[in-house]
Design a protein around this nucleic acid. Structure first.
Lengths: 245, 245
DNA sequence: GTCTATAGGCGGATAGAC
DNA sequence: GTCTATCCGCCTATAGAC
């Protein structure tokens, strides 16, 4: 970069472009290192105590240097949240695509198991996105698309089943019909409202099962957790109207 | 108290008893005030940042004085956790006893709704007991009996239904049968293992529904949350084999 | 972009006076 | 039981040199 400084404008420009590219690469690498260290801190201290200073310490940097990458603690937190949602979303999408010839019911349980496995492998990131809200932190709208990815996978499965006439009809009390219609209009206009209501219910229930396991509520209650979860996931598939071949 | 010090043994004993009584009362009151202030702090800052100093500040006491009531920050946290479990447990027990002539299925939904209402009324205490674990905090065994109260209410409902022959039989894959037998032996030896397995599943799912609502995951997804939850609770009742009259 | 230095806070826990 | 004083640590964020 010192070579570019004294050079004539045209050459300086080209050199700057090159330098910018290198700088951009370095920036991406440092940003990744910061996030990695932050994730380690997340595991050790929790999101509420995530501190730029501790991250800087671990990286051997001055704490003030981090402010060039993340303007505030909350921005770092937001980046971690988006990464976590994306990581889980990608895991779900991969699991959904994996069983090539499988029908919707089978795909459903495979995705459920992928969600569980991701959560068990990344408990602190799971806590970050599905655990208690971080006090004083308000998630910006940037997180919404990443957060929606898992849900879209399940909607896609339901859609496949519906198109293949493999989606059982659901009963719905009259009082819930307006709400179900509203949800369907927002989430999946091509699906029957009763199925969308059942899907949203199962979605929350799935994360109840996963959360209880990850957060330790099954301690001394459920031992063979894998078998237990598999059965629960199958029951959820039935609950949303998916039928096993 | 100084009067008791110089007095002969018999009288001293009586005076001490009286003084002890007054002191004990004062101690209970101060302890309650500390816990109240701590709960307020829980709401403002979260469990991870619960600090004896801040509590002392709010109470106008020296921070060191609190150590006479709670030997450490974690002991205060434990007291709050036990109180929260007890509060929820009591709410569930009351709800279960309330509908005098009602059958098990109706009781089930009433208790589910009581759990939801308690959680919505005490979101930070809910987060304390069913949210992300507090990093670095290990709950002592003292919390176990309080934590079990809600579950016992549901077990009681299932037992009533079973005795009244109002509990539908459950299917269970062979792979889960040993685990179901183990759970039944631990939790409710008088119930069919398949029903116990279904109950544990529904228990986790119930808290998934409640947690999603309390923690804001239903934001812009579910609007009429009361109707939505009521229907979900009824489906859970059916899922554990309870049938509406 | 990174550093040092700084401002202006916060925390848990203990010692020793009263 | 409550206080003051203290030890030693932590934090966010900014200013200004290089």
């Amino acid at each position: 970069m010192s070579t570019a400084q004294g050079a004539p404008k045209g050459i300086a420009h080209e050199a700057e472009q090159g330098a910018k590219g290198a700088r951009a690469r370095a920036r991406i690498e440092v940003t990744a290192a910061i996030k990695d260290a932050a994730r380690a801190q997340l595991a050790a201290e929790g999101a509420a105590k995530l501190s730029l200073r501790a991250v800087a310490r671990e990286l051997g940097m001055a704490s003030s240097a981090l402010y060039r990458y993340f303007p505030s603690r909350d921005d770092l937190l937001t980046a971690l949240i988006i990464d976590a949602y994306d990581s889980l979303g990608a895991a779900a999408e991969e699991a959904c695509a994996a069983p090539a010839g499988a029908g919707p019911a089978r795909r459903w349980t495979v995705v459920c198991e992928a969600v569980r496995e991701w959560a068990l492998a990344h408990p602190h990131e799971y806590a970050l996105i599905y655990g208690s809200p971080v006090p004083g932190y308000k998630a910006p709208d940037d997180t919404v698309p990443a957060a929606a990815r898992v849900g879209h996978v399940f909607i896609g499965i339901m859609r496949d089943a519906h198109r293949g006439r493999g989606l059982a009809k659901q009963a719905l009390p009259a009082g819930l019909r307006p709400e179900a219609r509203r949800m369907a209009a927002d989430l999946a206009p091509d699906l029957p409202p009763e199925s969308v209501a059942a899907l949203v219910t199962a979605w929350a229930e799935l994360f109840g099962l996963v959360g209880f396991e990850v957060f330790g509520q099954f301690h001394r209650v459920v031992e063979d957790r894998e078998a237990f979860f598999r059965h629960a996931a199958e029951r959820l598939a039935n609950a949303v109207g998916l039928v096993f071949a």
